[in-house]
Write a protein that binds this DNA or RNA. Sequence first.
DNA 1: AGTAGGGTGGACAACGATGTCAAAGGAGGA
DNA 2: TCCTCCTTTGACATCGTTGTCCACCCTACT
Lengths: 337, 337
Amino acid sequence: MTGRRPTLKDVSVLASVSIKTVSRVINNDPAVAAGTARRVQAAIEELGFRPDPVARSLRVGRDDAVGLIVENIADPFMSEVTCAVEEVARERGMFVVISSAGYAPENERVVVGGLANRRVAGLILTPTSGDHSYLAAERLRFPVVFVDRPPIQYDADTVVVDNEEGARVATAHLINHGHRRIAFVGDRLHIYTTRLRYQGFRSAMARAGLPVDERLVRVDAVGPENSAIAMTQLLELADGPTAVLSANYRSSLGVVRALHQSRRTDLAHVSFDDFTGAESLDPPVTVIYQDPRRMGRQAANMLFDRINGDTSPPRRVLLPVRLIVRGSGELPPPENA
Amino acid sequence: MTGRRPTLKDVSVLASVSIKTVSRVINNDPAVAAGTARRVQAAIEELGFRPDPVARSLRVGRDDAVGLIVENIADPFMSEVTCAVEEVARERGMFVVISSAGYAPENERVVVGGLANRRVAGLILTPTSGDHSYLAAERLRFPVVFVDRPPIQYDADTVVVDNEEGARVATAHLINHGHRRIAFVGDRLHIYTTRLRYQGFRSAMARAGLPVDERLVRVDAVGPENSAIAMTQLLELADGPTAVLSANYRSSLGVVRALHQSRRTDLAHVSFDDFTGAESLDPPVTVIYQDPRRMGRQAANMLFDRINGDTSPPRRVLLPVRLIVRGSGELPPPENA
DNA sequence: AGTAGGGTGGACAACGATGTCAAAGGAGGA
DNA sequence: TCCTCCTTTGACATCGTTGTCCACCCTACT
């Protein structure tokens, strides 16, 4: 018991074979006689030998780990995606190292570099940078799969939900319940998901022949606090909205807060993306549900296929979303509207 | 442009010096003449050379990365802890690799081994296993800091919040508002945090000279669903509670759901741990707030101190919690109670 | 009997960095 | 002028693993 980890060499001495033979046994190389293999196995067990992944990485140029880069671990949607990726990786005997890029776009490149340097076998990336052409320049030695948002100036496998259709369904749902003055609350339009959801909103309004009052469109509300302010301002309008579509869970939290604080829980509301407690609110919040686990599993499976040699052209997978009716989205407009 | 990453060798050829001299420049070894250093620097820049952390790890035995192991990334409290750890690491120029152990206790050891093999310089661990004596046997070459829960059968730095005091404060708050029949809803008592919060609850009741009705203690409610069921059953009791303390955010979500579904939002409720949307509920939920960012920063700083050579005896840091009054915890008991 | 061939096993180099040690070169003193 | 000493630099081994290539031994065929 020296405190030093056993190495191939220690095993080889104990088993009276060469280092290389031990290496062969570990890698299931058939060119080892059964008796020798048994002896080596016994020595491995006795010493509790585990191959050193760092040395292996250096030699082979690849680790048995995949990287996952998220914008912010604390985002509940991405947390679920992460769990799903880990599940799939565990099934395949791979290790997942997670790293978060934060909201500074230039950070993404640093983090990608950090994981690339550590020789991950593949990468799942939630893009935050506005330009991924640097990935081509890096001549990555491993596949990359994008989740939640597509890459920009770069071509790779991508898994996204049908943001536009989801927003269209949500908006049509409100229209079907008699609403004509529908507000849209989201963060910035340069964010992919927000932009597509906004397009879906406009598209549904246009199909119903309804005008969009630009004063009811707030695509400047970053975070719950600003969304709450934006919603409060909308409520103060003389001819305010009778319904609101919030573009993501952070906006939704702000909208909900504003509605409760203003005691205007009579206003119809649909949230794009479910959030914790949405069903416990009064009224419970009707949402567009996007399945994070499915997204994670899909992305992970695509990544492992690539790692295992799939060289078909990059695919873009569009996952469906679905409306969960809970109450807030079915409130009628006031009589006099 | 070969697509191959430049190595020390490439730089040394370009700068017409030996590999070792380049290595010296990178590590700021003063024994390099200024002119040589400049030439080498220029070559480094020209090739865009970055030292390979894997090779460095192999030689030095340590990576510029620290590991963070959580039970489940999707837990919002741990997500915040994670963010804080990343912030501190970024300040110190270190990389964080996160890995989640899941709820199977035996997994913890596997994940610790995985990170140890990858030569992390230190580890922050949210323990899930019931016995950490294996850490002593592993003769880890790096320091470990425990967060949220202390280690078992092992001695190491630990950062936890004052669970018992928090629960005592919450319970006393309800008692001060006139409640005598207070229910406790949590998951299992073998979970450290639940156990201490339960002790705090009993301790506050005892101090007030109030009996604890065992039928009002539900420490068998794992997850929101079961907590909702438990709460519903409590409401059905002939002499049910007039107030409830929920032991964590998952239990709280269940309790809130049950209260809303039963239209019993008149029942007083304090949640141990804040949760998203708690302030938008009707009534807004009074909570015991434990500061995850502070916990993360504290743990990270302790870890980096250890990495930098601090060999003082292990410390246990107890972080304070605070009551956030929002409404649900101040509801009075019914008149006839 | 000699040799061809397949099944085994080992010696050696390599991955990319750093530690050890010694050599080269210039400055300064006797 | 020569020797010493210090600064600067490089050759080599090393970390733990795997790829390449070759040597050996036994069987089996000509």
